[in-house]
Design a protein around this nucleic acid. Structure first.
Lengths: 205, 205
DNA sequence: ACTTTTGTTAACCATTTGGTTAAATTATAT
DNA sequence: ATATAATTTAACCAAATGGTTAACAAAAGT
């Protein structure tokens, strides 16, 4: 036995509880007591494991992002053909969000509130390499395989279509009159729908 | 003179200050003292005009949404042809957001945190009439003017492409290496780019 | 003139909150 | 066994925060 003590270690229980609470309430709205309760421990123990609220938050935030970035990164850098890559990205991204539907809003919110911390913590060494993808887009434009479009615009389009339904879910469900089951179903559809939507828009011929 | 007392009434100063603070920090992160300071008044006066924090927030939130909804509503319900309508929407929507770039994230965040309040406050009587637009889309599909697509998917696509760059701005600016001027420039481009992107994707012929 | 209503303030209060301390308990090593 | 280090807890604390009170000033009725 190396280090595992119980079913799940105290530290792990804390991180799980903290992630839930931070995602639900954000940094400002989260209460240390609630995290402690949810982890089944004393509040002082939180400060024993993580010096303070911000340190804990930072840990959770980084951990959360790490769940998304590596796979996305590897897709971006892969040698897939452009439209294959777009489809792989949408599929992977939407699947990941479906597992944790509240993470995008959480990330966007904290990223906007603390852009500097975000940049420092997140992209210190892990900045996604979009050069390959950008190069692919520019090359496709140059070869007249796709219509002229700035890579940034194309990427914003794709990401926006993937993320929006999740962050705008209450709005979507309300005005479109869809229940939870239907919503999940639609998100599944979007894994193929978005790439196709993009392809039809930019592909020449 | 009917009611105007000073340059701007106290109530108005409070609401302006509150909007700034709420948008910057969210409901949980906002401090009544900061609002009072920014409005140049005593904290107790806040509670004189608005019984409590939530009442004040509700007022600000509704007021904020009202700045967006009516025009969007009128576009949705107008008798413009489908692609004209999409272009009008994107133009109007992006222009409005450019005036207040932080409102979308604010709205999304609070909407997700209090879906019930949001539904009650916002759409009590002002629920946007999307039936006309939905009807237009379905008709265009039926007439084979556009490729088959569920209206909800099309609308999510459009809204996502409009909103995402603003809520994901730090990310966009970082990985795309664009400064503020360039960012604004790109958003201007998107007022035409998005409708064109959509048209190319779904229009038949 | 004076009474009532509205607007405004300083001081205060109860609660919440992040964080600390010192002591107790449990594991680990010698 | 015993000393040492790692966990865990209850009790506490200072600061911050939303909200209240009582008194005062300014308008508006009468």
């Amino acid at each position: 036995m190396v280090k595992t003590k119980k079913d799940t270690s105290t530290e792990e229980r804390i991180l799980n509880a903290a992630r839930e609470v931070f995602i639900e309430h954000g940094l400002a709205g989260a209460r240390m007591q609630e995290i402690a309760d949810k982890a089944g421990i004393n509040k002082a123990l939180l400060h024993y494991y993580f010096r303070n609220k911000e340190k804990l938050f930072e840990t959770v935030f980084i951990e959360t992002m790490q769940a998304f970035l590596p796979k996305i990164n590897s897709i971006f850098s892969s040698d897939l053909e452009l439209f294959e890559k777009i489809e792989a990205f949408c599929g992977e991204y939407i699947d990941k969000i479906l597992e944790n539907p509240f993470i995008p809003l959480f990330v966007l919110h904290e990223m906007n509130k603390q852009p500097d911390e975000f940049v420092k913590n997140m992209w210190g060494g892990k900045k996604p390499n979009i050069k390959i993808l950008v190069g692919q887009i520019e090359e496709a434009v140059h070869k007249k395989q796709i219509r002229p479009i700035h890579p940034a615009h194309l990427m914003m389009n794709i990401m926006g279509m993937c993320i929006f339904p999740f962050v705008g879910r209450p709005l979507v469900q309300l005005i479109m009159n869809v229940n939870d089951r239907q919503f999940t179903q639609m998100m599944q559809e979007r894994k193929k729908l978005i790439p196709e939507f993009v392809r039809l828009s930019i592909q020449i011929k």
